[in-house]
């Protein structure tokens, strides 16, 4: 289990309560550096809540979310303000319902993602407005980086079109490209294959594999599309009702009776047997 040896993300005893509802209950898992880790589970299992805790949209009720930097130091994400998780923690995310800046062009979307380095280059606007300092050069470099990601997401020909005009599959890829423009160590994807046809789904797999290979970014993804999960992920964590029911390599998870029970349900006569197995 190599994700235990060099984890990039270490989630310990994470609990999230909304009033009386326990959405995530004492969840612990690790995501390995350079791995593609999938977080799966039936609807309402609390996957997106876990994501929101990791990316700072929720403050966890209990528990710890630690990011291990390449130099081995830990950064506790739950203590950072929401916007700093991307900038200091280098964790980027996409959303289940695509959140692009639809009235801005594809290129502008990718430049907004490089806000913080550009802000420093423009001397926090003061130098930029007077036209002194290296802002022009920094912007050119930012455009080059955007072009790299446009090329990679095969959106070069749509660079000057408003993001809202793009077809659905392109929007999904643009959102991933935009997240990658922030140079993340960990990329969190919330159902990246939702609404894609099989061919687009295959292209997405290739994009994700190349992101891991070329950029060394670890990926954590929520997915319902098992063809994506089983083909590309190295490690699968299964949630049901906010608790972890299985954790391991895709093949192990696929054959885990608890997972099958959670996904497919079981026949009436087997309920007792399964309950005994899962310890309910």
């Amino acid at each position: 289990m190599r994700w235990l040896q060099d984890p990039i993300l270490d989630v310990q005893h994470l609990t999230m309560r909304f009033g009386g509802l326990v959405a995530v209950n004492d969840l612990s898992f690790q995501a390995g550096r350079g791995d593609i880790t999938a977080l799966i589970g039936p609807n309402g299992a609390g996957k997106t809540t876990v994501f929101n805790c990791i990316t700072g949209f929720y403050k966890p009720s209990e528990g710890m979310v630690a990011l291990r930097k390449p130099d081995g130091s830990h950064l506790l994400l739950e203590r950072l303000p929401g916007y700093d998780i991307n900038w200091k923690g280098k964790v980027a995310r996409t959303f289940q319902n695509i959140r692009l800046f639809s009235g801005m062009t594809v290129l502008e979307n990718l430049l907004v993602a490089q806000h913080n380095p550009l802000m420093i280059a423009s001397g926090f606007t003061f130098l930029g407005i007077l036209g002194i300092g290296g802002y022009r050069k920094a912007e050119k470099e930012a455009i080059e980086k955007a072009k790299y990601w446009l090329e990679k997401a095969r959106l070069m020909h749509r660079a000057d079109d408003p993001a809202g005009d793009l077809p659905y599959g392109d929007q999904r890829r643009l959102e991933i490209a935009r997240a990658m423009c922030t140079d993340p160590l960990l990329l969190c994807l919330d159902e990246p294959a939702a609404g894609l046809n099989p061919r687009e789904s295959l292209e997405l797999n290739e994009l994700l594999l190349s992101i891991r290979k070329d950029n060394g970014t670890s990926i954590l993804l929520i997915e319902h599309d098992m063809s994506v999960v089983m083909q590309i992920s190295d490690h699968v964590v299964v949630l049901d009702y906010g608790t972890k029911i299985s954790d391991g390599a895709p093949v192990e998870v696929r054959n885990d009776p608890k997972v099958i029970a959670a996904y497919l349900g079981v026949a009436d006569e087997e309920v007792e047997k399964v309950e005994a197995e899962i310890g309910a």
Partner: peptide, 11 residues
């Protein structure tokens, strides 16, 4: 356009 997306991009 989208405040939540802004926050996720470190703004």
């Amino acid at each position: 356009e989208d405040e939540i997306a802004c926050r996720s991009l470190g703004i």
